[in-house]
Design a protein around this nucleic acid. Structure first.
Lengths: 178, 178
DNA sequence: CTTTGATATGTCAGTAGTGACATGTGCGCG
DNA sequence: CGCGCACATGTCACTACTGACATATCAAAG
């Protein structure tokens, strides 16, 4: 149920409409906690029903501006400090590696090459993003930078691993022969 | 729908019952693609209905032994070589880091310390697992080792990042003062 | 012989997330 | 003035996954 807390967290930084929040989810939050429009509007209504947020203004085109309530802030604090983060262990890519003995070594090698290339691409795109942002001393800037750094390190690690693994497949093939 | 392909992949290595497969999902596959019992039995029936697997023997206690069919093998091949792995971007832990400016620096620091400690623990447990397994030249051994190595590198990276981030929070606090 | 635990499969209600569809409005540009 | 795009919210059917419940059997230990 982290979407709930993501919304509370964003609203804790300032009131906003569903549409505004959607923009954030498709922007800076896309790499951390993506959400679809339908899910978002539904959750906002549920949060309002539960009294964790409330409509503070209505604008043109039916726009509803939400703000976090005291109850909502308390819940957010509780979540941040007391609740253990859910570790998402499912990894489609690793599942495939686990089963990679079912295809020819050349295909396994191609798979890992592709992983390495994609990780490199993703790393580069994060690096550019990092450069393009004007980081300042604001709290959001400080912690946003930490998450981006995680992405940089994760993509670097993934690339190195894939290259190592690809080389190991070649070595394994040779070992079988000799 | 990767559970489907995980099951096909396991059955491609040899026929087994739902109960056997459940053991694998709670064992070696737990860190890659966990699945509950209810989900597993349901999917096996759906796979059999679709003709991707078939019951090849019935044992005591209603045991049903499944084997992969040619259609199933073809589908597995297609999945492994043609379908792009789903990248799971949702990360509860990173979402919290992103919102960590909402709590006191000391609490943020504690959060990251805990992350570092947990990553170290997980790394150590994987290292022991690695040592305890007698890796041979079998294909399953070779590719299983690659996934484990990914885990080792991921936990190491995560720990280093958390330690770096914790230090950065301290530095940020001082910078604000000076 | 009885009890216990591992083997073995199944159902069900509920939650989270997806993608498509539906609908209407205000703003700026030509 | 009217056209199109961005703004803005909502519904719906479907899929994946979870945790709890239900049920029965065989083997071994006491």
């Amino acid at each position: 149920m982290s979407l709930r807390h993501a919304l509370l967290g964003l609203l804790a930084h300032g009131s906003a409409s569903g549409y505004d929040l959607l923009g954030t989810f498709q922007g800076s939050l896309a790499n951390v906690w993506p959400a679809t429009q339908s899910q978002l509007y539904g959750e906002l209504n549920r949060l309002a029903d539960a009294g964790l947020i409330s409509v503070v203004a209505e604008g043109p085109r039916g726009r509803k501006e939400y703000a976090i309530t005291d109850t909502g802030r308390a819940e957010l604090q509780r979540w941040l400090t007391e609740e253990e983060p859910e570790r998402n262990r499912r990894n489609d890519m690793l599942l495939r590696v686990f089963l990679l003995d079912l295809v020819e070594p050349a295909q396994a090698r191609a798979f890992l090459d592709r992983e390495a290339a994609l990780a490199a691409e993703r790393h580069e795109s994060l690096r550019k993003l990092d450069e393009s942002i004007e980081w300042d001393d604001s709290p959001l800037s400080r912690y946003g930078r930490l998450t981006l750094e995680w992405g940089l390190r994760a993509t670097a690690m993934h690339r190195e691993w894939a290259e190592w693994a690809a080389a190991r497949i070649d070595a394994g093939g040779r070992r079988r022969g000799g």
